[in-house]
Write a protein that binds this DNA or RNA. Sequence first.
DNA 1: ACAATATTTAAGTATATACCTAAATATCAT
DNA 2: ATGATATTTAGGTATATACTTAAATATTGT
Lengths: 110, 110
Amino acid sequence: MPPRKATSDVFHAIADANRRTLLGFLAQKARPVGECAKELGITYAAVSQHLSVLHEVGLVERKSLGRQRYYRTRFEPLQEVYDWTVAYRPFWQNRLDALGNYLDKEEDSE
Amino acid sequence: MPPRKATSDVFHAIADANRRTLLGFLAQKARPVGECAKELGITYAAVSQHLSVLHEVGLVERKSLGRQRYYRTRFEPLQEVYDWTVAYRPFWQNRLDALGNYLDKEEDSE
DNA sequence: ACAATATTTAAGTATATACCTAAATATCAT
DNA sequence: ATGATATTTAGGTATATACTTAAATATTGT
């Protein structure tokens, strides 16, 4: 398989740090692209592309107001990520999981 | 910024579907590379590379036994992902978030 | 219609990804 | 040591990423 597009699923979409920052920035309040660009310190074009990715996976909604386009985070798709991590939650807490006991607890061999 | 390596953080590491499958496969029981390759239907080499990425971010531990190398998932680093999603949990549930009311609730404009 | 503002799209660059095949390394059994 | 088995590393391919700059597309005010 060739590398998959960031637009193909939520996990890919949130892999980028700038996109995660955007989701936080747009959580409380819808904002136009220009403000996002200022926040991230990159060009309008780059922000526009990131927002486009987020929009394709449903992580932001947008609304044109005048000549500006307001974006706001929609968190619903994150539930998939939450669910995936939570499924493994039992493992974070007690280290005594179902590992066959032919392996002991030493450090990794390099 | 150029694209970041998958080894740079957990979010990147779990973006790939095959790597997520591996984490599930290696959750309960440590297994050698060969079994993983059979499970995923790709070559040893490809699996070895994926496991190497997961190891670099601490998502698997490994242990050599004889000529095999057993890998097992370590879920601790997933807590970062969990925490990030959970921080936004209030938003999934009630749609009445702090959006300024100059935007209404219609569908997105395309 | 015209200029200014806000955003998107197009085209380009350097680097990373997700594989593969083939060669290299490690371990075990003889 | 020799050969078989298990895994990693090296080298290669096609495609994707994360930007950039410049051109194209709204939208608004005059």
